[in-house]
Amino acid sequence: MAGAPGAGGGPKDAGWGPLALPLMLPTWAVIGIFLALPVLLMAVYSFLTREFRGGVEWQFSLAAYDQFFVTRGLFGDEPPSLEWTYILIFWRSLWQAALATGLCLLIGFPTAWFIATRSPRSRTVWLFLVTIPYWVNLLIRTVSLKFLIRDNGPLNEFLMGIGLTSGPLPLVNTNLAVQLGLFYSYLPFMVLPIYAAVERYNFALSEAAADLYAGRWRILWEITLPVVRPGIVAGCLLVFIPSLGAFLAPDLLGGAKNFMIGSLIDEQFKGSQGNWPFGAAVSVILMTLVMLALLIYARAQGRGRA
């Protein structure tokens, strides 16, 4: 079983082998032309000279990468040393995305499981129930969430009403609020892939294990999880990667006091800094990190099988 869905190669060919290339063709055409080419252009931009206030001059330069990794003090005349500013921003964003993914998994897996074990007819309804909220714009959802958790908002009034807390729980402008916001932004991306995997799960496997007197949590951990893992991995990817670049939740719920990767890149293209090569370089570094992690994972999975 491949870990990253579709990452491993397979014996499960069933005569599809010769069709593989034609079947990939639309993907190659669409993503290749309309995304890979523009992104390649961006990668090129990261090696060009910054045009003041946005844009590039077609002259090779490593200034963007230099700015990312090397600092020479505010006035640029100190001896060069490693620049921690942007590494710190990356670390903060990675950590936050990881926490949000964990939270989504914790709530999303049981939800997906629950849905997948309903009767076939009601499953569709449950699935829709999970996706209906996403017909409302993300901005509106985030603002409404903020309304709920503010100091004098319904949540705090409820908590104080039942005597759980004596004063308002400060949530707005905290990391916890950002986690909640990211969780709320991306939950279905966790639930739907896991649902698709669990729905297919053959419960006879669990039953066989139960007949051998295995406890149900052990069955879940040792029998079920490995089988539905592609769904879990897919879900984690779909939550983790967009969380990395998210800036609506960090800005609105976290107070935007510190740059995240998303807002840092945004500032380079749309902010007053207008430093396109640097924005492109930050993106290239981010993409390289994520892509490397994915490929290493896919390779490891492929080797594990063979």
């Binding site: 309304f147 503010r150 100091d151 707005v172 402008n173 800005d251 609105l252 107070g255 935007a256 006091k257």
Partner: peptide
Amino acid sequence: AKPHWASFGSDTAKDVLVSGD
């Protein structure tokens, strides 16, 4: 001064005052 600030926000500048945030 930054530790005394709760948030950075331009679009939300009015709403945070009205809501009391």
